[in-house]
Amino acid sequence: MSETHAMPHRRPGLSPHQASRRRMSQGSRLPIATPARRNKPRLKLTRWIGLSVFGAWVLIAIFGPLFSPYPMGAFVSDEIYGGMSAAHWLGTDYMGRDMLSRILTGARYTVGLAVVAALLSSLVGAGFGMLTVLLPRWLEEGIRRIFDTLISIPSKMMALVMVSAFGTSIPLLIIAAVLSYAPGAFRISHSLATNLATLEYVQVARTRGEGRFYIAAVEIMPNMIQSVLTDMGMRFVFIVLLLSGMSFLGLGVQPPAADLGSLVRENIGGLSQGALAVIAPALAIGTLTIGANLLIDSLSNSRGSQKE
């Protein structure tokens, strides 16, 4: 079970005072070939790959169940861990159900839940991370303490207490994932924003009397968007894996439905015989998460190159 003592992931991107130098240097238009420019063809390729792979998964999540050859919960074969066949393109699972149908249906949960949860955790984490540096010192300290406390609570405990207090539902699953992963996003963006807030142009904006939200959105956010995005990419991966652990505890996806991670988990017994039932969902997770990360990488990189 992935008892996920909330796993902090941090991918701080640029060191902000250097970023500001870059900002300042933009006016001088130094005749330099930036590395970003040199790599344009590659960026296009990875973006294309990322977009098509991730896009394919989004399409599967939306339309997949329409094309599933069997009902996801139907016991259609006597053979367990069956191989590829005309009747079952991706074989059968540990109870003789059609794997293709299960993956097509499971993708909907994984893609939908992970996208929403990753977006929300980054939004909450990064939002607070940026705003707190502009708040009075005591409030900032208080919010930091809260997030540090949240990150120290084992997510198994969190999931259990949520199930017992509120029952089980998909929104609850998202909340649990956000509570587990927002604190990490907060720490990253907060430390980046702390660096940025010390810089001249932010200080200038403050003395100009700009509002907090304006400063956060216009002066700080653009200079850390890369790191926030990339951090979100990693967070997406971990949320995909977290879902199966949470479902196992009874929070969220209910049988016979299963998310991709749970599909790997429930068929793990077939690994020794190289069963498709475990390989196929593992590959699904791999392509989904790698596609999402390539897409995010190329998004942040392309922003960088536009700036130059």
Partner: peptide, 10 residues
Amino acid sequence: INLNRVPGDG
């Protein structure tokens, strides 16, 4: 039938 899976814990 709606299945309602609850944790083994407790």
